[in-house]
Amino acid sequence: MNVVNAVLPPMTQAMEFFGAPEDGPFVMVNLLKFKPRAEYPDGADAHLTGREAYARYGVEVTKLVEALGGAMRYSGEVTGLMIGDVEELWDMVALAEYPSLAAFREMAMSPAMHAIEHHRAAGLAGQLNIKTRPLTG
């Protein structure tokens, strides 16, 4: 298995994700890796860690998720690995529940999201976003 962290998806991957059929509520599993130091394009807040810059994003994105009827279900620090092997562990795991793909797309494309994305980019070295849906029956 090849694992590649990224901060933004390639356009083809984003189009495929958002072009998928609507299949109801889902939980996004976010595996997050932070930069040692925040990297804002203008050099501001260079005293912050990547985790601290991302925390700014986290506070604001939580409001956006809740406004569209979703919820932040869990966030926690990665402290170990029991099964498997990866070159480097992620720093944090976060689970966000969304009511629909359409709601997630609306949030992702919104001016409010655009206004906070610089904190995300300043703090993240990379991530995996894994869309999951509840098992039925």
Score class of each variant (00 low, 15 high):
N2T: 13
N2C: 08
V3N: 08
V4A: 14
N5H: 07
P10V: 12
T12V: 12
T12I: 11
T12E: 15
Q13R: 15
Q13W: 07
M15S: 12
F17C: 05
G19P: 05
E22Q: 04
G24P: 04
P25Y: 01
F26S: 14
V29Y: 05
V29P: 00
V29R: 01
V29I: 14
N30C: 02
N30D: 02
L31S: 00
P36C: 01
P41H: 11
D42P: 12
D42A: 01
D42W: 08
G43Q: 05
G43L: 07
D45N: 15
D45I: 03
L48K: 08
L48E: 01
T49C: 00
T49K: 09
A53R: 06
A53K: 13
Y54N: 12
R56A: 05
E60N: 13
E60T: 05
E60P: 04
V65E: 10
A67M: 03
G69H: 08
G69L: 04
A71T: 10
R73H: 05
S75H: 12
G76N: 04
G76Y: 03
V78Y: 01
M82A: 12
M82H: 13
I83F: 11
G84L: 09
G84W: 10
E87S: 11
E87K: 06
L89Y: 02
V93R: 04
A94L: 10
A94I: 09
A96N: 13
E97H: 15
E97W: 01
E97T: 04
S100G: 08
L101P: 00
A102G: 09
F104V: 05
F104Y: 14
F104A: 12
R105C: 02
E106V: 07
E106N: 10
E106W: 09
A108N: 14
A108L: 10
M109Q: 13
M109C: 02
S110D: 03
S110A: 11
S110L: 07
P111N: 13
P111S: 14
A112K: 15
M113L: 08
I116P: 05
I116K: 06
E117Q: 14
H119E: 08
H119C: 11
A121P: 10
G123S: 02
G123H: 02
G123I: 01
G126T: 01
Q127H: 07
Q127E: 09
N129H: 04
N129L: 14
K131C: 06
K131M: 10
T132M: 08
T136E: 15
T136H: 05
